[in-house]
Nucleic acid binder design. Structure first.
Lengths: 205, 205
DNA sequence: GTCTATAAGTAGATAGAC
DNA sequence: GTCTATCTACTTATAGAC
């Protein structure tokens, strides 16, 4: 009876660090969200892909919103780390590093930016999740505005912000339409405008 | 017994032209789709808003996909009519007419472009609906490419197409992010870049 | 922590009366 | 054409054993 419970606990504690089912859930949830959208995947989809029963998913994330919050927070932290890793580079190389994940996503053929997808689902989300989405774009656009000012010293803070907002809109829109038209190179072609807008030109490959 | 059936038919035939519940359904479905997304509204939502029972909605549109197809086709026809009505104007005024619905949508505060929303739901749609979405963007972008060539005769067809694709991505992305940030003027600010990209400048108001 | 079992509600869709 | 009534499947979520 209770001896099994004890064994289970020992097992769980011993392997919790390595098996990390929480990360497995988030990994598959990320793909499902970025492919279909927040309202077009279910716990069943998640359970089938991870091999984890839906009740266990609820143990790690009590509600579906909790899954969404964890995903966008991780996405934002990934961005923050990327931006930090780019800081030693010259500005044009920083920008190339910034767009790289967008280009990679376009080439998956069926995914979109996680934050862009949640932005499209905005009105069906609870306030907590909406706030996380706004924070992601605030981070990205403030950073882009700083890069624009570094490249174009004549630019005032307001103009740099407009520039950054247009650049971000261009990336999100290009990714969305590249997916709908099954044309990943559409994203590549949009980059010329992105770099021109920021005040430089794409690195020649 | 059958007398009631006959009366009902007479009533239906008499008022079918004026009451037009099919149009009512589409009108509310359009708002729901553009606000929440295709997977975030149901027949129940539609029934509550129109006052039409869900079984009657199924009479007009056997499946939910049929509602979506009717919506995007109407949306595309509205665009086609708009483009036709703009043809007598000088190109810069045509472009102003083209962006007007986007600006208006941004100022609703909670809607997005119908085609943009379906593009975001792309992977959860059936092929018929996907094809309709692609046709919408083909129409818009080919027209934009023609306008770009009219304003910039030096531009080749390929460059004009790239230009048109970037312009469309900018509009869709700006609308998406204006909504998420509750900042309709973000759309207005993006228009400077839109017009510059097309080879002109926005009309001064 | 993970499972089986199940709840309570909603999804899109249909049958048949009138 | 529109309704009431109903269906089957699926949704998110919980209870309780181990």
């Amino acid at each position: 009876m209770t001896i099994y419970l004890v064994i289970d606990i020992i097992f769980a504690v011993t392997f919790s660090a390595t098996s990390n089912r929480r990360a497995d859930i988030l990994e598959h949830a990320s793909i499902l969200l970025r492919t279909r959208g927040f309202n077009a995947f279910s716990h069943r989809d998640l359970a089938e892909r991870t091999g984890i029963k839906s009740s266990s998913i609820h143990y790690h994330f009590p509600t579906k919103q909790d899954v969404g919050v964890a995903l966008i927070r991780q996405y934002r932290e990934d961005l923050a780390q990327l931006l930090q890793s780019l800081s030693p580079l010259p500005v044009p190389e920083r920008l190339a590093g910034f767009v790289a994940p967008f280009v990679a996503t376009a080439h998956t053929g069926d995914q979109w930016c996680l934050a862009g997808m949640l932005a499209s689902d905005y009105n069906s989300l609870d306030e907590l999740l909406r706030d996380e989405v706004r924070q992601f774009f605030d981070l990205a656009e403030h950073w882009l505005a700083d890069q624009a000012m570094a490249l174009q010293p004549a630019l005032g803070p307001d103009d740099a912000q407009v520039c950054a907002q247009s650049a971000m809109a261009l990336l999100e829109g290009s990714l969305l339409l590249a997916r709908a038209q099954q044309d990943a190179r559409r994203m590549d072609r949009a980059l010329n405008l992105f770099f021109a807008l920021m005040g430089t030109s794409p690195a020649k490959t």
